[in-house]
Structure formats: C-alpha cells, structure tokens
C-alpha cells in the first residue's frame, strides 16, 4: 500500500509533467501559426511554376532531345523513395504515419519485383526504415528544425537527386510527406517527383495570342524542370513543418488532459487515505478514553 507521502510525490511529479506538456502545446501552437503562414506564402510560386511547366510540356513533343526529367528513363525498375519526416519525436503519429505509408508502397513494389531504395530526410523516418530495409538505405539527411528550412536547402537536395537520376541510380522517384489539412488532420501523401508529372488539365488555359519564347520552349523547359523538383521538395517540407506542429499540438493537448485526469484520480485517492488515517486515529483515541 502506497503511503501518503508516496502519493503526494506522485501527484507532484504528474503535475510537473503536465506543466511541460502544456508548455510544449503552446509552443507548438505558436510555431504552427508561423509554419502555416510560411506554407501559404509559398503557394503562389508553386502554382505559377506548375502552370507554366504544364503549358510548356503540353507543347513539347517527346523525342530523344526531350529532357529526361520529363520523358523518364524508359524503365521503371528502380524506385527511389524520398521520405520526408522530422528529426524530433513527441509529435503523435506524425512520423510513424509517413513511414507506414512508405513501407506499404515499398512492399507493394517489391512484391512486383522492383527495386526500392530509400533517401530519407529526417532522423525519425530513417530509424524505422533502416530497421526494415537495412540494405536499401541510399542516403540520409538530417534537416534539423523544419520551420527554419530555406529554399536553398531544398535546392541542394534536388540537385543531388537530379544528379543521381542522371547517373542512372534510379528510374522513378517518389516523395513522401504529410499534407497539412487542419490541426486535427494531416494526411500522409505520396507524390511522383521524377520524372516530372504533368497534372492533367492544368494546361487548359487558352490564351488568345501566341506566346513568344526566349529561348525556345525546350530550352526554357530544361531550365524549369530541375527547379520544379526543388520547389516540390520545398513545398513538401513546408507542409511537413505545419503538419508536425499540428500533430504535436494535438498530442500534447491529449497528454495535458490525461495528466489532468490522473491528478484528479490521485487526489481522490490521497484524500481518501488521509481520511482513513484520521478515522483510525480517532477510533484509537476514543477507545483509549473508554477503557479508562
């Protein structure tokens, strides 16, 4: 039976845990606001670039001179999974959900006899995947604080990926990240990164006048495609940053509430025990007095 002292200590420790989770929740809420704003600020660029690339791609006919980033290598034997998670835990199922989706897709492709390799951004995803596929880890990046990433970082990774692609290390690259929908819902998402996928219907903007190009369409396309890869990665990182904070906020909110419940229960137990002790004492005194 736990003594009164032990119960009191227990309550104290749960209370300080609650303080910490409460603080983490508030920090996550503040960071979420910022991450959300950042994700929104980046949207115009991504949208315009996508539209331009789509309209250019619809004009260019696939030939041997078409950039490989658009036409593909003509095979789909080796798939590279770029799995973007975060470096830090304590964010609910955020990292686990992304890793699970990647794993499911990977197993599907492996069952079809394809080779799957992993390129991880973020320590948490890497830890899970390395345990399952120790031989297929290609490269790992530790991005640090997702909220502080700049476009230069994404650009660097994109360049590295494109170089590997051109060296023939893989045929298709998929990007895994968590799309931010709301504080309560973040959806793990898979997206084809290389070759560049042209969204259907995006090029449907009919312009009345003929557009002039300088240099020609194909040269512009060759210039824009690598940039598009970087932008997609950057966008995914931004989404991830918002998702991570949203997920962390919910997780910490739950933890705070659980701690509250626990404190309530422990308090009741403590009071009950205190009363029992007092009653015993009284009984002792009264029976002592009666004996006289």
């Amino acid at each position: 039976m736990a003594s009164l002292k032990a119960l009191k200590d227990r309550i104290g420790s749960v209370k300080s845990t609650q303080k910490i989770t409460k603080a983490m929740q508030m920090v996550a809420a503040a960071k979420l606001k910022r991450a959300q704003n950042a994700a929104e600020a980046g949207r115009p660029y991504a949208q315009r670039l996508e539209k331009v690339v789509a309209s250019l791609a619809s004009k260019v006919t696939i030939s041997s001179t078409t950039p490989k980033l658009l036409s593909g290598t003509g095979k789909d034997d080796v798939h590279l999974f770029v799995v973007a998670t975060s470096d830090k835990g304590l964010a609910g199922a955020f990292n686990a959900n992304i890793a699970r989706l990647a794993r499911r897709e990977a197993d599907k492709l492996i069952a079809q006899g394809k080779t799957v390799e992993f390129y991880t951004i973020g320590r948490k995803g890497r830890a899970v995947l390395r345990r399952l596929y120790p031989k297929q880890m290609k490269h790992a990046i530790e991005p640090g604080d997702l909220g502080k990433l700049t476009f230069d970082d994404a650009h660097e990774w994109a360049e590295d990926l494109i170089k590997r692609y051109e060296d023939g290390e893989f045929d298709v690259a998929h990007l895994f990240y968590s799309e931010f929908q709301s504080v309560l819902s973040q959806v793990p998402t898979q997206q084809q990164l290389i070759p560049v996928k042209i969204p259907e219907g995006a090029a449907e903007e009919k312009s009345s006048a003929a557009v002039e190009y300088e240099p020609d369409e194909e040269a512009i396309l060759a210039d824009l495609l690598p940039r598009n890869v970087a932008v997609q990665i950057f966008r995914a990182m931004r989404e991830n940053a918002a998702s991570e904070q949203g997920s962390k906020m919910t997780a910490m909110d739950n933890a705070t509430r659980n701690a509250g419940d626990l404190i309530k229960r422990l308090n009741i137990e403590y009071n009950r025990k205190r009363q029992a002790a007092i009653t015993t004492e009284l009984v002792e005194i009264i029976s002592g007095a009666e004996a006289l």
């Binding site: 312009s207 003929a210 557009v211 002039e212 190009y213 240099p215 512009i220 210039d223 824009l224």
Partner: peptide, 19 residues
C-alpha cells in the same frame, strides 16, 4: 535581365516567356 538580353515591359506587352 533576360537570358538573351535585357527587355523592358510596359503595359499591354505581347505574351512572352523568357528565362
């Protein structure tokens, strides 16, 4: 500063794309 030379854009410029 276009890739193939500077160009100025005024209102009602013809549709144009350039690196």
């Amino acid at each position: 500063p276009g890739a193939e030379g500077d160009f100025g854009v005024l209102a009602n410029h013809a549709p144009f794309m350039a690196t």
